[in-house]
Computed example of a mutant assay.
Amino acid sequence: MFSIIQAAGWPIWPLIICSIVALAVVVERLSSLRAARVIPPRLLDEVLSVTRANLPSPDVVNKLADNSILGRVLAGGVRAVIADPRITEDALRGTLESAGRAAVHRMERYLNTLGTIASAAPYLGLLGTVIGMIEIFGSQSPTTGSNPAMLAHGISVALYNTAFGLIVAIPALMFYRYFRGLVDQYTLDMEQAANRLVPHLLRFSMARASS
């Protein structure tokens, strides 16, 4: 590996840095976007069960918010009803939408970085190719002829950087698309969960209004 890096020359170092950053982002997102940490399968049903008769205590709501990203969204709705027992449907939906936007922003963390690397890596490889070609032409002299060592080095710089740029870009792009699809699916699931929670919580508001 070290010999390949030497043969590729200095243009490969930005690609190595990009590969390290991309790997770190992929590992972090694979951990953070697990279903158990975003949308636990039975969480909504448990919230509906706990709030069937009465609103939960603040400690229970805090535990719900710490449970997962969906838990934080649902906890925002429950807190809104606790804070304003006569809350309207529009206000409650607005609170859940605000919490949902914060949740989406949290799920999309670092994805722009990964997408940028996927887009920039081929160009960095192309930059190395251009530098290698410059060295190839620079090794040609009309008086002394070609320099085989410089010619070989220029070819190495050109080919290795192109290949390494693609090696970095292709997996980064695949994971970026995968994470984007995952976030979109989670966003849809959260919207459906919020739509189920709203009429359930509004029962308490209607009960206060009628009393």
Rank of each mutant, 00 (worst) to 15 (best):
Asn195Thr: 02
Met133Asn: 04
Leu74Gly: 04
Ile16Ser: 06
Pro148Ser: 06
Ala83Thr: 06
Ile12Leu: 10
Gly154Met: 06
Thr51Val: 08
Arg196Leu: 14
Thr116Pro: 00
Val25Gln: 09
Pro58Trp: 06
Arg93His: 02
His105Val: 07
Ala121Cys: 05
Arg101Val: 11
Gly138Glu: 14
Phe137Thr: 12
Asp189His: 07
Ser57Thr: 14
Ser156Cys: 01
Glu191His: 07
Val130Arg: 01
Ala172Asp: 07
Arg93Leu: 02
Asp184Thr: 15
Arg180Lys: 14
Trp10Gln: 03
Lys63Gly: 12
Ile82Asn: 05
Gln6Leu: 09
Ile167Tyr: 11
Pro11His: 02
Thr143Gly: 10
Ile4Arg: 00
Ile39Leu: 14
Ala118Asn: 07
Ala7Asp: 05
Val47Pro: 12
Val26Thr: 15
Val60Ala: 13
Gly145Cys: 08
Trp13Phe: 10
Arg79Gln: 09
Ile170Cys: 09
Pro11Leu: 03
Gly132Val: 03
Val78Pro: 03
Asp45Gly: 14
Leu151Phe: 05
Ser119Ile: 01
Arg106His: 07
Arg72Ser: 11
Arg29Ser: 13
Ser32Tyr: 05
Val73Arg: 00
Met190Gly: 04
Trp13His: 01
Ala158Val: 07
Thr95Glu: 15
Arg180Tyr: 08
Ile117Cys: 07
Glu89Arg: 13
Tyr123Leu: 11
Ala65Leu: 02
Ile69Asp: 00
Tyr178Ser: 12
Met174Trp: 12
Glu89Asn: 08
Val61Asn: 04
Gly138Ala: 13
Met206Cys: 07
Ile155Asp: 03
Arg52Leu: 12
Tyr110Glu: 02
Ile82Arg: 15
Val25Thr: 09
Ala75His: 01
Arg101Lys: 11
Pro199Arg: 07
Pro122Gln: 04
Ala99Gly: 02
Gly138Val: 13
Glu108Ala: 12
Leu197Tyr: 09
Ser68Pro: 06
Leu96Phe: 04
Gly128Ala: 03
Trp10Asn: 03
Ala65Lys: 13
Ala169Val: 11
Phe175Trp: 14
Gly125Thr: 02
Ser68Tyr: 02
Ile131Val: 10
Ser68Leu: 06
Asn54Ser: 09
Met206Trp: 04
Ile39Cys: 14
Val198Ile: 13
Leu23Thr: 13
Val38Gln: 03
Arg196Pro: 03
Ala22Asn: 11
Leu44Trp: 14
Ala158Thr: 06
Ala53Lys: 11
Ala65Glu: 10
